[in-house]
């Protein structure tokens, strides 16, 4: 059994640039463990999602147990333990956006991409087959004045209508 797990895993190591960033990060805190969140963000950006190998590497770097890393990864919604699409679309659905018809935007995206909304435990059902998009709901994105809003990876898109969504998706670099 254990041999099988080792075979399935792709090994993980920070690349040169991220290693340099990590070394800078670690100097900011009096204890190494405190660099956990920024390190996991870096690792996720490099690996796409947090695999067991990533957790092991981060645990080694921060001198904590793998379980402690897993503990943190499972708590925060921004860390993925399964593969996600190239573009992660986060649709805000909290009250101020709901009052401005975010449901129309969500339904339009569901129909256009032909996928369901990903849940935290099942990201696959919200990911397109070609691995390009992952559609998920999030809680308030703190942009209630320009509701409804969505975030595509790091970019916020405001005052959306189905037509605007079409335009934004068409303009994404493939």
């Amino acid at each position: 059994m254990s041999d099988e797990i080792i075979q399935l895993e792709t090994p993980f190591q920070f690349n040169e640039e991220n290693k340099k960033q990590f070394d800078e990060l670690i100097g900011r805190y009096p204890i190494k463990e405190a660099a956990m969140l920024p390190t996991l963000h870096l690792a996720q950006r490099q690996a796409g999602y947090i695999t067991p190998a990533v957790m092991r590497h981060v645990a080694d770097l921060l001198e904590v147990t793998v379980m402690k890393v897993k503990d943190v990864v499972t708590f925060y919604p921004m860390f993925f333990e399964e593969p996600v699409g190239e573009y992660v679309i986060r649709v805000c659905q909290t009250l101020p956006c709901a009052l401005r018809d975010c449901k129309v935007v969500l339904d339009h995206l569901k129909e256009k991409l032909g996928i369901d909304v990903a849940s935290e435990t099942n990201l696959a059902k919200g990911t397109t087959d070609d691995g390009k998009f992952t559609l998920m709901k999030v809680e308030c994105l703190a942009s209630c004045d320009v509701a409804p809003v969505i975030m595509i990876n790091d970019d916020l898109h405001k005052n959306l209508t189905p037509e605007k969504v079409d335009q934004i998706l068409a303009e994404l670099p493939s």
Binding site: A34, A35, M36, L37, P38, L40, D71, V72, F75, Y76
Partner: peptide
């Protein structure tokens, strides 16, 4: 220091725990 999407980290002691690299 970036958070990772948890509302409770806005509570001051939750923020401190999160800053220390925990839940």
């Amino acid at each position: 220091h970036p958070g990772a999407g948890a509302y409770i980290c806005g509570e001051e002691t939750g923020l401190i725990e999160s800053l220390e690299g925990k839940r």
